[in-house]
């Protein structure tokens, strides 16, 4: 069912929704576009390329308390963290929505991650189709598209004078007021994107675990965590207990396979000590380990990592390089 609303009606609708729910939307912060809870609908950016960080931070926040334990009158009390309110995440691009669907794999498999599941259940996703592709975009090579409604509850597509509203799920339908006009014309054509040769990459990468390629690529890698933190599908975290006067909080924060100490184990053994081993892990997880367990490559083609990397390590180039290595190997 496709509907149409004017921009003014969209704003009025969001204002109504904001009375009862938290709305997380792209807003301008110090020159950057970021997903943040809004206090007024006017803050929302309707026209933006994509946000500097992905929307994963709403479902897996950079830092959150999982539970706290308190000693009270000789009793030990366990207090799990809960999600207080229903939320709407507005303005997600289809690539980022697919990122959330991919994160569901590890977080919702049994036993599921309680907090993630609760946030997921209590959040409605309103996507915004891309009317323009950016030079870093390659979502069509990664199973999505600029107008892909698969992983949102409602998808908005901007047209002249307003927005086409595609109602995708029951959860999305529940948010809609009555009386919006039907949209009967045909959908606008999505922008064309450059393609990346992803076909066969999962079997190609398998052959090059011990290839010197990774050490060479890692020569220029700084081993910062930028790629992992801007990525919509990187979901590793660290957990630590914070004791404070009779109370202990268990906190988790984003962490990445590139950081020193990530794979350090008790006793001091580290299975990944070289730069190449660390960098290889990033691409093996995305292009081999994740597909082996969840049947999909863990990349949505948003292009943030390549854009943000200070030394231009680009997953598209890595994919092409691996194909070349595979060709060279089969030719020899």
């Amino acid at each position: 069912m496709n509907l149409f609303i004017s921009k003014d009606d969209l704003i009025r609708w969001l204002e109504l929704l904001l009375r009862e729910r938290i709305i997380i939307a792209p807003i301008r912060v110090q020159g950057q576009t970021m997903f943040q809870p809004i206090s007024k609908v006017e803050e929302i950016m309707f026209d933006f390329d994509n946000t500097a960080l992905s929307s994963k931070g709403w479902f897996l926040p950079p830092t959150e308390t999982l539970f706290s334990v308190r000693r009270d009158d000789g009793q030990i009390k366990l207090m799990p963290a809960t999600v207080e309110r229903d939320a709407i995440i507005f303005g997600i691009r289809p690539c980022d929505a697919r990122g959330i669907a991919l994160m569901d794999g590890p977080f919702l498999q049994v036993p599921s991650d309680t907090l993630y599941q609760e946030r997921r259940n209590r959040t409605t996703i309103i996507g915004l189709a891309c009317r323009q592709a950016q030079p870093e975009c390659f979502c069509t090579s990664m199973g999505s598209a600029p107008d892909d409604p698969s992983h949102v509850d409602i998808l908005l597509t901007e047209v002249k004078d307003g927005y086409i509203v595609q109602v995708v799920t029951e959860k999305g339908k529940a948010l809609l007021p009555k009386g919006w006009a039907k949209y009967k014309r045909k959908m606008p054509t999505p922008p064309q994107l450059k393609t990346v040769p992803t076909k066969g990459i999962v079997s190609a990468i398998r052959e090059f675990f011990n290839d010197p390629y990774w050490e060479r690529l890692a020569d220029r890698c700084l081993h910062c965590n930028i790629c992992a933190y801007v990525c919509p599908t990187c979901y590793c975290f660290d957990v630590r207990d914070y004791p404070d006067k009779g109370k202990v909080e268990r906190v988790r924060s984003w962490e990445s396979c590139q950081s020193p100490g990530f794979s350090l184990t008790a006793g001091g053994y580290d299975p990944r000590t070289t730069k190449g081993e660390r960098l290889r892990q990033r691409f093996y997880h995305k292009l081999l380990y994740f597909p082996e367990r969840f049947q999909e490559v863990a990349c949505v083609g948003c292009g943030r990592c390549g854009k943000a990397c200070p030394v231009n390590i680009d997953i598209r180039e890595v994919i092409s390089d691996l194909h070349q290595l595979a060709e060279a190997k089969s030719g020899s």
């Binding site: 700084l222 910062c224 933190y229 924060s253 984003w254 962490e255 950081s259 200070p310």
Partner: peptide, 30 residues
């Protein structure tokens, strides 16, 4: 976002274990 890119790129940051990663004592949390 504590990506530590500022540290990783800095020619003056080369401690074998950065205080930010030290667990005992814990200087700064996660």
């Amino acid at each position: 976002i504590r990506c530590y890119a500022c540290r990783q790129v800095c020619p003056g940051c080369y401690c074998p274990v950065c205080f930010a990663e030290q667990l005992e004592p814990l200087w700064v949390g996660i």
